[in-house]
C-alpha cells in the first residue's frame, strides 16, 4: 500500500500540469470569441482525445498500431445512429434495427454509448490480434483499419456507404470537448500508474524479464487495447458532433498518420508527449494557416502560397525528429515537485 500511494504522489503533478495547459487553451478560446477560432480549439481537444487514446495502447505497450482510427470510425457512426432524428434516419439508413431507428438520444448518453460500442469492438479485435507483437501486430492492426473502412464504405443500408451521413446534431460549445479531454487525460494517467499499466510498460521495456516475472503480456495488452478503443470511440463521437457530418474516409489514413505523427513528435512513451505533441503541432499548423490567409507585418501583408502550410509542417516534423528522435519530451513526463505537491513527498 505504501509503495502504491508513493507512485501516485510522485506522478500526480503530471495530469494536473497537462490539464492546466489544456485549460489555458480553452481560456484563450473564450477570450478571442471568434467562431472559426472556437472550432480550431474544439479540434485541438478532439485531437487530444485521439492522441491520448493512441498513447494508452502504443505508449504503454510499445506496439505501433495503425488501426485505432478504425475505432474512431465506429464511435462516430455509432453516435450518428443514435442521435440523427428518426425521420431522417429512415430515409438515409433504412437497414438499421428498429430500436436504433426510432432512438433519438441526447449528446451525453450518445457519446458514452458510442465509446462503449467502440470498446466492445476493440475487445473482440484485440482478443484476436494481441497474441501478435512487433511489426506483425502493426500490420495486422492496419489490416483491421482497412477492413473496418471497407465495410463502412460499402454497407449501403446501414452506413450510407461512401456518401456523407448528415443530420448529426452539432454542439458548438467548447466545454463538452474540453471536459472529455480532461477526463481522458485522467483516465490515461490512472491506467499508466495502475498495476496493468506498469506490467505492460515493463513488458515493453524488457519482454523476456516481464514474462519471466509472471506477466501475461497478451492479457495486459488486451486491457490497454480495449481501454484505448473506448477513448478512440469517444474521440470519434466528439468529432461527429463537432462537424455534423461523417464519411468513412474521414477516418482512414490521413487521420491515422496525423495522429500518429503528433504522438511520435511529442514523445510516444509519455502522456505529456501525447498532449504536448497535439498542442504544439496544432499551434504551428494554426500559425501557418494565418500566414496562408495573409498577415500584415510592418505595412505589407505577408502571404504564403496555398499548400506550403502542409509542406512546412512536414519539414518541421522531420527536423524535430532529426534532433529529438524520441520526441519533444524525450519520452519523459512533465513533473513539478514544488508547491503545492511538496507535502506529498514527505516520506520519500
Amino acid at each position: 500500500m505504501a509503495a502504491r500511494s508513493s507512485i501516485l504522489a510522485k506522478t500526480v503533478s503530471t495530469p494536473v500540469i497537462l490539464i492546466g495547459i489544456l485549460l489555458i487553451v480553452a481560456l484563450v478560446a473564450l477570450l478571442v470569441k471568434s467562431g472559426p477560432f472556437n472550432q480550431t480549439v474544439i479540434d485541438i481537444f478532439i485531437r487530444v482525445v485521439l492522441v491520448v487514446g493512441l498513447y494508452v495502447f502504443i505508449g504503454n505497450s510499445g506496439v505501433i498500431s495503425f488501426g485505432h482510427i478504425g475505432f474512431t470510425c465506429l464511435g462516430a457512426y455509432a453516435t450518428a445512429w443514435l442521435t440523427i432524428p428518426p425521420p431522417m434516419k429512415k430515409m438515409a439508413l433504412p437497414g438499421l434495427p428498429d430500436i436504433i431507428l426510432n432512438a433519438k438520444l441526447p449528446f451525453a448518453p450518445a457519446i458514452v454509448l458510442a465509446a462503449i460500442f467502440a470498446g466492445v469492438c476493440a475487445l473482440v479485435f484485440g482478443k484476436i490480434l494481441m497474441r501478435l507483437s512487433g511489426i506483425a501486430a502493426s500490420i495486422a492492426t492496419f489490416a483491421m483499419l482497412a477492413l473496418i473502412n471497407q465495410v463502412y464504405s460499402n454497407w449501403e443500408r446501414v452506413t450510407g456507404a461512401t456518401s456523407s451521413v448528415v443530420g448529426i446534431p452539432i454542439n458548438r460549445s467548447i466545454w463538452p470537448y474540453a471536459i472529455c479531454a480532461f477526463v481522458v487525460v485522467i483516465i490515461a494517467y490512472l491506467y499508466a500508474i495502475s498495476r496493468s499499466g506498469l506490467a505492460l510498460r515493463s513488458a515493453r521495456d524488457e519482454a523476456t524479464a516481464a514474462a519471466a516475472s509472471g506477466i501475461d503480456i497478451p492479457r495486459e495488452r488486451l486491457i490497454a487495447f480495449t481501454l484505448s478503443g473506448v477513448i478512440m470511440g469517444l474521440g470519434g463521437a466528439l468529432y461527429a458532433h463537432s462537424v455534423g457530418v461523417v464519411t468513412p474516409d474521414t477516418f482512414y489514413l490521413g487521420l491515422t498518420f496525423i495522429s500518429l505523427s503528433m504522438l511520435v513528435v511529442g514523445g510516444m512513451n509519455s502522456l505529456s508527449g501525447a498532449v504536448l505533441g497535439v498542442v504544439i503541432l496544432s499551434t504551428i499548423i494554426q500559425i501557418l494557416r494565418w500566414f496562408e490567409k495573409g498577415v500584415p507585418i510592418g505595412g505589407t501583408t505577408l502571404t504564403i502560397p496555398n499548400g506550403l502550410q502542409e509542406i512546412a509542417i512536414g519539414i518541421v516534423m522531420i527536423v524535430i525528429l532529426m534532433y529529438r528522435p524520441s520526441g519533444l519530451t524525450k519520452n519523459r513526463e512533465l513533473v513539478w515537485r514544488g508547491w503545492p505537491f511538496r507535502g506529498l513527498f514527505g516520506g520519500a
Binding site: 499548400g307 509542406i311 519539414i315 516534423m317 522531420i318 525528429l321 532529426m322
Partner: peptide, 27 residues
C-alpha cells in the same frame, strides 16, 4: 540522419517526407 533512430521514428519521418512530396505535387 535517422540511421540510429528507432523504427517508429523512421516510419513517421518517412510519412512526413511523403506528405511533403504529396503537397509539393499538389501545389
Amino acid at each position: 540522419r535517422f540511421r540510429n533512430a528507432n523504427p517508429a521514428t523512421m516510419m513517421i519521418a518517412s510519412f512526413a517526407l511523403g506528405f511533403v512530396i504529396r503537397y509539393f505535387l499538389l501545389m
